[in-house]
């Protein structure tokens, strides 16, 4: 059964190589996208942190995105 699944009447190498290749590429691509996103979130949060107290308050009140990113960032770190 297992042997059959791996060998697939000689087609195994073709089938498995295309499946493994596809999922490997997908995984790497996912990882890279996620990494970029995290990087930007971090930079954005740091930038907000650097603002003066009043301006920080205005930014967090005015922009939902800013407050969302800022709060999730502060939770995780």
């Amino acid at each position: 059964m297992i042997n059959n699944l791996i060998y697939m009447d000689g087609y195994g190498i073709f089938v498995w190589s295309s499946f493994v290749l596809t999922f490997l590429v997908c995984a790497v691509f996912y990882y890279k996208t996620r990494k970029t996103l995290k990087k930007y979130e971090k930079e954005f949060a740091i930038e907000i942190e650097k603002l003066s107290v009043e301006r920080k308050k205005i930014a967090l009140e005015k922009s939902k995105v800013a407050s969302k990113v800022f709060s999730t960032y502060n939770k995780t770190f």
Binding site: Y30, T33, L37, R55
Partner: peptide
């Protein structure tokens, strides 16, 4: 679903990038 996931993450990155630039103007 995988595509949607990647697309949303990329789109989110783009929005954050724009908001970050706007922050300077605030």
């Amino acid at each position: 679903l995988y595509c949607a996931l990647i697309f949303l993450m990329k789109y989110k990155t783009e929005i954050i990038r724009i908001k970050k630039n706007n922050l300077k103007r605030l």
